[in-house]
């Protein structure tokens, strides 16, 4: 597997065998980048991993969003994406009070939800699922959504490490919004710093180990 930064219009590799994946097109014998990012050749598949840009919702993503409006049948949610999201009442767990939506989630409140559907005019969300719902207390920080995989790490290794060392509850939205809650302010600030440490080093190899060292040193 090889990885290299490519820019739009650049030839990544030539050959009939390769298959163009996300952000890649075929022109004759060549596979060409159709966006800026990290080109990854894995077996026959060539794709581009974005390094920057806005969050693009995908079905099944866990996202954190802010209530910006309440309608007769649900909530409009800003999920930091090109489109507004909508959370219909029917996608809420049963104990929600249908007659006073504001009581459940008012304008300006934050929720953690799952992307249910993507339509041309917006995104539908659901709260049905474990750990989904309104966020109480804690604080929200924002990172570039493309750095989320790094923050989470392989099978959650990075985020679990940060949770453990900072003693904070953390929920990472795929849209780059992260919710933190700690016993003390110091813990929260510490976990925020740890997350920034990770997002500022997108190209570093063995980042989990380095983060561990950093966490242990700072913790002293």
């Amino acid at each position: 597997m090889s990885r290299e930064v490519v820019i739009p219009g650049e030839t990544i590799i030539a050959g009939e065998d390769y298959l163009p994946g996300d952000g890649v097109r075929r022109e004759g014998n060549e596979l060409v980048a159709s966006r800026f990012g990290l080109a990854e050749i894995s077996g026959r598949l060539v794709r581009i991993i974005p390094l920057s840009g806005v969050y693009i919702p995908r079905r099944g993503n866990i996202v954190i969003g802010r209530v910006i409006d309440i309608t007769f049948n649900g909530w409009s949610i800003d999920i930091n994406a090109p489109y507004l999201a909508f959370l219909p009442i029917i996608e809420c767990p049963r104990f929600f009070n249908r007659y006073d939506l504001a009581e459940n989630a008012d304008i300006g409140d934050m929720i953690v939800a799952k992307v249910l559907n993507i339509k041309t005019r917006g995104v539908d969300l659901t709260l049905k699922g474990r750990g989904l719902g309104k966020l109480e207390k804690g604080m929200i920080i924002a990172v570039n959504s493309n750095k989320v995989p790094r923050v989470i790490g392989k099978e959650g290794s990075m985020i679990n490490l940060i949770k453990e060392k900072s003693k904070c509850d953390i929920i990472v939205g795929q849209n780059g919004l992260i919710w933190l809650k700690g016993e003390t302010i110091e813990d929260e600030l510490f976990s925020e710093k740890a997350i920034k440490f990770v997002t500022e080093r997108p190209f570093v190899e063995g980042l989990t180990e380095k983060t561990k060292e950093w966490l242990e040193e700072k913790k002293k």
Binding site: I7, P8, G9, R35, F36, G37, P50, G53
Partner: peptide, 11 residues
């Protein structure tokens, strides 16, 4: 535009 991750054919 490229930096913003906008789909682009070329520069």
């Amino acid at each position: 535009l490229a930096h913003a991750g906008i789909p682009m054919k070329e520069i």
